[in-house]
């Protein structure tokens, strides 16, 4: 910074008076000397203009509002006790929360991230498969899908994934020996349960009606694959209760 002595003031002196000059505190001979240096010095002239502009920019900044809860957080982190005055309603007037409600609140809070994950498409696919196998099991056990719908186990997104991937799911299940085994046992259980009932509901769409062969015999004629397909399509809205075993041929058409 060039020192300017011709006006009787040096740059460092000008610098020292600059804040006072901007605050309007200079007067008399001091102000004259300041102004003389301001006009003559190539460094201090621009400095004055810039300092003035900068101060004006800063003066234009307004105070920001502290975030809500700051005071409460400070009090909690210092005294360790929340302020009574800061709590809008007195604690005694607040409704009592039962332990059950607390557990429910905790549980729903804990489930939140899980639901977030489940909603992702790749998990929805897995979830759809899981739901599908659950549907099979429930249908076989006599629970209707309409009952399931009422407890909203089917988010809209899931349903879409479910239908769009159903064909693949069917093929997938065909290859699982375990399913065959479960299926055959369930069939055995059903067989034991059904005799008490009157004749199974009349097949709705029966074509090969020529014989009144016992169910067991007829059933024996079907391949495992076909039965698998029947069970696989059951969750489409048909429960096994609606599907007398004798009428399997009819329902094959759904596949």
């Amino acid at each position: 910074m060039p020192e300017q002595t011709s006006s009787g003031m040096q740059c460092h002196e000008f610098d020292g008076l600059l804040t006072d000059a901007l605050d309007g505190l200079l007067s008399g001979a001091k102000l004259d000397r300041f102004q003389a240096h301001f006009r003559a010095c190539p460094a201090c002239g621009p400095l004055f203009a810039e300092a003035e502009a900068g101060r004006n920019w800063l003066k234009g900044l307004t105070e920001v509002e502290p975030p809500a809860g700051l005071v409460e957080n400070i009090l909690a982190s210092t005294t360790g006790i929340a302020s009574d005055r800061l709590r809008a309603p007195a604690p005694s007037t607040q409704p009592r929360v039962s332990w059950l409600e607390k557990v429910q609140a905790w549980f729903s809070g804990a489930m939140q991230p899980i639901w977030g994950t489940v909603r992702q498409p790749r998990f929805a696919m897995s979830f759809g498969m899981a739901f599908f196998s659950l549907s099979v099991a429930l249908s076989v056990a006599g629970v209707k899908p309409s009952d399931l719908r009422q407890i909203s186990l089917r988010p809209a997104a899931l349903r879409h994934t479910y239908y769009s991937t159903q064909a693949r799911v069917v093929r997938y299940y065909e290859n699982i020996r375990f399913v065959y085994e479960v299926e055959s046992r369930v069939r055995g259980i059903k067989r034991n349960l059904t005799p008490a009932e009157p004749a199974p509901a009349k097949p709705k769409d029966r074509k090969n009606d020529t014989s009144k062969e016992p169910e067991q015999k007829q059933e024996r004629n079907y391949s495992q694959t076909e039965n698998q397909l029947i069970l696989a399509c059951a969750p489409l809205g048909l429960s096994v209760n609606d599907l007398p075993v004798v009428s399997v041929t009819t329902y094959r058409r759904f596949v």
């Binding site: 804040t19 400095l47 300092a51 502009a53 900068g54 920019w57």
Partner: peptide, 20 residues
């Protein structure tokens, strides 16, 4: 105090240059 004033001058001027 002199250093404070000098820093204030420089801070204001620097800010003005940036904004300019």
């Amino acid at each position: 105090e002199g250093t404070v004033k000098s820093r204030i001058n420089r801070g204001r001027a620097e800010l003005a240059r940036l904004l300019q």
